[in-house]
Design a protein around this nucleic acid. Structure first.
Lengths: 153, 153
DNA sequence: CGCCCAGGGTTCCCTTAAGGAACTCACCCT
DNA sequence: AGGGTGAGTTCCTTAAGGGAACCCTGGGCG
């Protein structure tokens, strides 16, 4: 199927997709986040092909999102989120919020978050990390940053 | 390549991936967001195969994320974000923030956001929509919601 | 002390999706 | 009538996902 790699694009969205944009990868991260950290668990829970699971896990380890570490004398390994990987969970929380709002239907959300700070059932909201006001699609202008692609002189 | 559909899973992340998890889809939405709304523009900018672009656009229209509308007497169409689609941009903003932080390297971010409310260069941060405090991977407990999968009685 | 088990992968074949180029179609403009 | 343009469609090739079978290593156990 020869998929095009996005990593060459001067775009942080494309680069992020290169790390976690492949099929299954977000679901693998979700499972690891909630404590399903072993190969067999992931394979059984997701119903993913073992071959593809191996590929995805290796890729995530290479990218520094997961860490593979032994949990036994025998060759047994589990995968845990690194700091970099934990920050990626932000993305899953936003996906969950959008899916709950637009795709859950009559039944309502399958999962709820209870926020430690306030103890309430809640979802994430996007705010400006500078002023704290809401910050969404219509609230920003896009400017070229230092890393814009330079066209040859 | 017979990809497994995620839509049957009782998980809002999986369902969201079913809408926008295919390769190219987030980049298409990014382009539409910044004003590249026509077939030829998208194809030229992304270098995507025309066939795949057609499939993705049709899917996004079916899902109510984009609207296809004529802009000429001739059969000419542009694609614009619906309200549902505009909310999906949240995801792209979070991807951009993560990519900037972890993948931009020396060069720095290719693109910057200026927040209308404060006029500053900023990125999104995740906050609780109930109490406004930060809300990230470690700040929540997961509880079963009303839409959990019921196993047969 | 030899056998079996379990976790964690590999290998192999089959099917299908992505790439890519060529072709089509409808309408406008000379 | 002929050409141009945007928006797709068609067709072929290649590679990625699905799925099942196989392998390897180190206990545990009769």
């Amino acid at each position: 199927m020869q998929r095009t790699s996005f990593s060459g694009m001067a775009c942080s969205i494309a680069r992020t997709l290169d790390v976690m944009g492949e099929p299954w990868t977000p679901l693998i991260l979700r499972d690891v986040w909630v404590g399903m950290t072993r190969f067999e668990q992931l394979q059984a829970d997701l119903g993913i092909s073992r071959k593809v699971l191996t590929e995805r896990l290796n890729h995530l380890v290479e990218q520094g999102v997961l860490e593979r570490r032994p949990y036994d004398q025998r060759p047994r390994y589990e995968y845990v989120l690194t700091a970099k990987g934990t920050e990626l969970i932000d993305l899953l929380m936003v996906m969950k919020a959008w899916g709950d709002r637009h795709l859950a239907g009559e039944a309502g959300p399958p999962v709820l978050y209870r926020h430690h700070a306030c103890g309430e059932i809640a979802d994430v909201a996007l705010r400006c990390d500078h002023c704290g006001e809401p910050m969404r699609a219509g609230d920003v202008d896009l400017l070229p940053g230092p890393g814009v692609a330079k066209t040859a002189t």
